[in-house]
Computed example of a mutant assay.
Amino acid sequence: MPNARDLLAPQPHCPDCEVAIGQPHVEGCDVARCLRTGLQRLSCERKHNCGNDTWSGRWPGEADCERLGWMIGPGLPDLNRLLTEATWNPATRQWDARA
């Protein structure tokens, strides 16, 4: 069984578009997020500029789950809870727990 710390370790390249950490995702990448909604950029149907999301080395929302303490188990962020119980803050580009 892998070490829980290894599960959340930064990955050097995006699993879809293969850009390196700190580089903007390429058009059509299904990992990239809309910086206005926090949701998947590829599926964003709003008529706005989604911004240029960059690969952080971690799956979108993992760091927010860790920060909020929303983990299913060691190394397993509760991304479903994040999307149902948090609000996207476009100014800080992170998910915040609803009051």
Results as ranks from 00 to 15, higher is better:
55 W>N: 02
63 A>S: 14
56 S>I: 00
62 E>Y: 14
49 N>K: 11
62 E>S: 11
63 A>T: 10
20 A>H: 11
13 H>V: 10
21 I>V: 15
56 S>H: 07
90 P>K: 06
98 R>F: 03
66 E>G: 01
79 L>W: 04
46 R>S: 11
95 W>K: 08
65 C>S: 03
81 R>L: 03
78 D>P: 12
46 R>W: 01
53 D>Y: 03
62 E>D: 14
42 L>S: 09
42 L>N: 12
53 D>T: 07
11 Q>Y: 03
45 E>M: 08
88 W>T: 14
77 P>Y: 02
92 T>S: 13
44 C>L: 08
29 C>S: 12
97 A>C: 08
26 V>G: 08
88 W>P: 06
5 R>V: 12
24 P>A: 11
28 G>E: 09
92 T>I: 10
94 Q>V: 00
86 A>E: 01
10 P>F: 01
16 D>N: 13
62 E>F: 08
4 A>C: 03
7 L>H: 05
29 C>E: 09
72 I>N: 02
82 L>I: 10
34 C>V: 02
89 N>E: 13
73 G>H: 05
31 V>I: 14
69 G>M: 01
65 C>W: 06
79 L>T: 06
51 G>M: 03
88 W>C: 14
33 R>I: 09
99 A>Q: 12
17 C>Y: 05
89 N>C: 13
84 T>A: 09
86 A>K: 04
48 H>T: 14
64 D>H: 05
17 C>N: 06
54 T>K: 10
2 P>H: 11
49 N>Y: 12
50 C>H: 14
80 N>W: 11
95 W>C: 05
25 H>R: 03
75 G>Q: 10
37 T>S: 15
89 N>T: 04
21 I>R: 09
72 I>K: 11
70 W>S: 03
32 A>V: 09
23 Q>L: 10
67 R>T: 00
2 P>G: 01
1 M>V: 04
50 C>W: 14
81 R>M: 07
64 D>N: 11
65 C>H: 07
40 Q>A: 07
27 E>D: 15
11 Q>I: 11
8 L>I: 15
46 R>Q: 15
47 K>H: 02
26 V>H: 15
48 H>S: 05
60 P>Q: 12
75 G>K: 05
19 V>A: 03
27 E>I: 14
48 H>Q: 04
35 L>T: 08
4 A>V: 04
90 P>L: 10
51 G>V: 02
30 D>R: 12
74 P>Q: 08
93 R>Y: 02
37 T>C: 15
94 Q>I: 00
9 A>H: 02
5 R>Y: 12
58 R>G: 00
66 E>R: 01
70 W>P: 01
16 D>H: 13
34 C>L: 09
56 S>M: 04
23 Q>S: 09
14 C>A: 09
6 D>N: 12
13 H>Q: 08
58 R>F: 00
3 N>C: 09
97 A>F: 03
23 Q>V: 13
21 I>C: 05
63 A>Q: 15
20 A>Y: 07
74 P>R: 07
5 R>M: 14
18 E>S: 13
42 L>T: 07
33 R>V: 04
49 N>C: 10
75 G>A: 11
88 W>Y: 15
28 G>W: 09
18 E>T: 15
26 V>T: 12
10 P>A: 08
67 R>Q: 00
74 P>K: 06
26 V>D: 13
6 D>K: 12
51 G>W: 09
58 R>E: 02
3 N>E: 06
85 E>F: 00
12 P>R: 08
19 V>W: 01
